[in-house]
């Protein structure tokens, strides 16, 4: 029952929407009833039309994200523990973090072609920033007590990274990954909208060209849901992997 009242406002809005677009005062091709949008959503899943673009978007996002984690985590750890690396990279990443990397789409298309590679590379670039910065802050903020304690037990410099710095930075790394997941899906869709090559972004742009609001909406719902599931998955994984971590109050 409380769940019902909680979502009452949404239900009210949807009903209003349905009613307004059924009165005929608005063009149903511009502002179709919700029921028709939902119907289209079910339809494109039913006839399988949504799977190829969904797959394209998701694998690009995940590939870019994975590459960013593979490069960003070691780099961030290095920056957190090695002075010279910090000196060189920290200003670059801090400076670049808020900048719109999306503006590099034409350059990346030139470098990596119109197809998947340029998209994956841009996703990689964009995701690298939060991952590097969060990892760096995690590794930097470690309490030296842990390091001293490991040192006194004879852990070497290189093993220290593996055995102490990485596990202790995991919480912060995961925060970075959470941010990067959102960025990955967003950049995937934008690159597809801008330079085509399949995917949900291109599907939406094509729907726009044909004035097909229902499909554009269904694709938007799909992207949002997929992004949300990915985000929740990352959150769940975080909980599983960081079971020993006690959130500091």
């Amino acid at each position: 029952m409380p769940l019902l009242t909680r979502f009452l406002p949404i239900a009210v809005i949807l009903l209003l929407w349905e009613a307004v677009s059924r009165t005929g005062y608005v063009n149903p091709n511009v502002f179709p009833p919700v029921s028709e949008i939902l119907l289209r959503w079910v339809q494109i899943f039913w006839d399988g039309r949504i799977y190829p673009p969904l797959w394209d978007t998701m694998w690009r996002a995940l590939a870019g994200l994975t590459a960013a984690i593979a490069v960003g985590v070691p780099l961030g750890l290095l920056m957190g523990r090695v002075r010279a690396a910090e000196w060189f990279f920290e200003p670059l990443f801090s400076f670049g973090f808020p900048l719109p990397k999306i503006a590099l789409i034409p350059l990346y298309v030139h470098w990596f072609g119109l197809f998947s590679l340029s998209k994956v590379m841009l996703i990689f670039t964009d995701c690298l920033f939060p991952i590097v910065l969060f990892t760096y802050h995690g590794a930097r903020g470690l309490s030296s007590v842990y390091l001293w304690s490991a040192q006194s037990r004879g852990t070497g410099r290189v093993r220290m990274f593996w055995r102490v710095v990485l596990p202790l930075s995991l919480a912060s790394i995961y925060d970075g990954v959470q941010v990067a997941v959102v960025v990955a899906v967003l950049v995937a869709v934008v690159t597809e909208m801008v330079s085509g090559g399949g995917g949900l972004g291109e599907l939406m742009i094509r729907a726009y060209r044909f004035g097909d609001v229902r499909t554009a909406f269904a694709a938007l719902l799909t992207v949002s849901l997929a992004g949300y599931i990915l985000y929740k998955l990352a959150q769940w994984l975080r909980g599983r992997l960081l079971f020993w971590h006690v959130a500091e109050v």
Partner: peptide, 10 residues
């Protein structure tokens, strides 16, 4: 959870 730029076509 909606990636906002994806709303541009709509």
């Amino acid at each position: 959870p909606v990636p906002k730029p994806a709303m541009i076509p709509l």
